[in-house]
Simulated scan of single mutants.
Amino acid sequence: MTAAGGKAAGSTIRIDRLLVYLRFAPTRSAALRLIETHALRRNRKHVLRGAEQARIGDVLTLVVGGRVRVIELLALPDRRGSPALARTHYREVDGDNLDPKAQMSLAPSPVVADMQGDEPGNPS
């Protein structure tokens, strides 16, 4: 464990549990809904399962309350704590250049975009 109460640098944590511990979701079920609606990316790639692992240094892009937030993980929490304690485990990345409606930062994944281009009557 680190002095800040987080896990060691080589450790990982399930991403659904991390969202709860960092207070971006009240429960793991709510965290899974974020994942299922493609409202979460880890290192620019959509998170597809709650069991995906997050590490210190990962950059998460998520939509919470209609707002895009980009955070970098500084430490992994051991449990859900106060909001002030949760904020010590990450830092906000400058989001000034993001599209406020999240159209550019959270566009459909390439797989979804490719499927839409293959639909009949859809000029590509």
Rank of each mutant, 00 (worst) to 15 (best):
D58A: 05
R87T: 14
R67A: 03
D99E: 12
A25K: 06
L18P: 01
L76A: 05
I15A: 00
S82L: 14
K101I: 03
I71T: 00
R79H: 15
L60Y: 06
A84Y: 06
P108T: 11
V63T: 11
L19G: 00
E36S: 13
I56H: 04
V68N: 05
G95F: 00
A102V: 06
P108A: 13
L48N: 04
R23F: 09
V68C: 11
G65N: 05
A39D: 10
R33I: 14
L40E: 03
I15P: 00
R23S: 10
L32D: 15
R17T: 10
D58M: 07
I56T: 12
A84I: 12
A31G: 07
L48R: 13
R87Y: 05
L85T: 10
I71Q: 05
R33P: 02
E72H: 05
R91Q: 13
V47K: 05
P77G: 03
R42W: 01
P26K: 15
S105G: 15
V93M: 13
D16T: 03
A51K: 04
L40T: 04
D96A: 12
A102H: 12
P110C: 07
G81R: 06
D94A: 13
D16I: 01
A25I: 08
H46K: 01
V93Q: 08
R79G: 11
A84M: 08
A75E: 13
V68S: 09
L98E: 09
G65Y: 02
D99S: 13
R41M: 13
I35T: 11
K45E: 14
E52T: 03
R67I: 05
Y21Q: 11
L73I: 15
P110Y: 08
G50R: 06
I13V: 11
D16H: 04
Q53V: 07
D96T: 10
R41K: 15
R41N: 06
D96V: 01
G66C: 06
G66L: 03
V63N: 10
L19R: 01
S105Y: 08
P77H: 01
L22M: 04
L62C: 10
V20H: 09
L60D: 06
A54N: 02
L19S: 01
V63M: 12
R49C: 06
D78I: 00
E72P: 04
Q103E: 15
